[in-house]
């Protein structure tokens, strides 16, 4: 069987998830790994929206907020199982993305960036101010998913850190698989076509507004699921998950690693999640470094780290 880029990416991801624990100096790193995978899921959605379709969102953390608070609020208020709350959050995010994107994506230009910026801030404000429902900036506890206990019953006894590491790793690989499927499918081709030349895409029959809307809705679902997984593993969530800085973080991770490639974007997510964890100095200057990284990548490595490195290696090989 021929090794397609899709298969190669999935194998690399699976190998990393399975082999990395052998290098962990302490159990703390299961937690760091799980955070990387959670961010990778959101960033894979950004690859579809920005890398494939060429659209920018500055408010994707808003959808992560919806996913996170769905897991906190739906079980408490409606008695829904947390796993179903993930689905509910994704559905609300998809619906909201559709409602906001439909009028905006008919327009040409950078309206989506501005509209999503507003939407993200709005969601963040709501989570902060609707104290009776969300308990405001102090945050709210999130119920146990219950899957770990279920696995224990089947004889697979994992620590909390291990469980979330492998579970989020699996979700990340699933998300990558979907995004890679899309890349070479008719819909993915249409997205990349309208990114390359909107006018040419329209003349080959691509309904540009509809395709952009689909990409926006799909990427919102990715962000929502990422927020849900973050809330469920922390068992606690604050409105910061929906904050503007989190939105910028998602875009920076994708752009740093390479927004056109799933593996590249995940690479970017890994670097920017890992750095503040291992270098405490970095944490204090995180926003400063984020801005600097973004500027340097845009100037020197416009395709992102991983695609630029691969290109250099290929040149050397020739």
């Amino acid at each position: 069987m021929k090794m397609t880029p899709k298969l190669a990416t999935l194998l690399i991801l699976a190998a990393l998830v399975l082999l990395a624990p052998f290098l962990f100096p302490s159990n703390f790193y299961y937690r760091v790994g799980a955070l990387i995978f959670v961010n990778s899921i959101a960033v894979t959605g950004i690859v579809i929206l920005t890398g494939y379709a060429g659209q920018i969102s500055l408010g994707h953390a808003g959808f992560a907020g919806i996913g996170a608070y769905a897991c906190a609020l739906a079980p408490a208020h409606f008695g829904i199982h947390p796993a179903l709350a993930v689905v509910l959050g994704a559905a609300i995010s998809a619906l909201l993305a559709w409602l906001v994107g439909r009028p905006i994506l008919r327009l040409k230009g950078y309206y989506l960036g501005v509209a999503t910026l507003g939407l993200g801030i709005l969601i963040s404000m709501m989570l902060n101010n609707e104290r009776q429902l969300t308990r405001g900036p102090d945050g709210i506890e999130v119920p146990e998913l219950g899957l770990r206990a279920l696995l224990k019953g089947w004889g697979l006894d994992l620590t909390n850190g291990q469980f979330w590491y492998y579970f989020c790793g699996l979700c990340m690989i699933l998300g990558a698989w979907l995004a890679l499927n899309l890349h070479n499918s008719p819909s993915g081709r249409a997205l990349r076509a309208l990114h390359g030349s909107e006018v040419a895409a329209r003349t080959v029959g691509v309904d540009v507004a509809r395709m952009k809307l689909q990409a926006f809705v799909i990427s919102a679902v990715y962000a929502s699921v990422s927020g849900s997984l973050l809330a469920l593993q922390n068992k606690f969530i604050t409105p910061d998950v929906a904050g503007f800085m989190h939105s910028i973080e998602m875009v920076t991770m994708a752009v740093l690693g390479g927004v056109g490639s799933v593996l590249g974007a995940i690479f970017g997510a890994a670097i920017l999640t890992l750095l503040p964890q291992v270098l405490t100095v970095f944490a204090e200057y995180e926003q400063l470094v984020l801005g600097l990284v973004m500027m340097l990548v845009m100037i020197f490595l416009r395709e992102g780290l991983l695609p630029s490195i691969l290109r250099k290696l290929r040149r050397k090989g020739e």
Partner: peptide, 27 residues
């Protein structure tokens, strides 16, 4: 031309109307 695509992909893009289907099936 869709610059970042291969020559083949550019040509395939022309078949959009014949090859398009549900995005869910594509995912």
């Amino acid at each position: 031309i869709f610059q970042s695509m291969s020559v083949l992909e550019n040509a395939i893009s022309g078949f959009h109307l014949q090859e398009r289907g549900s995005v869910l099936a594509d995912l």
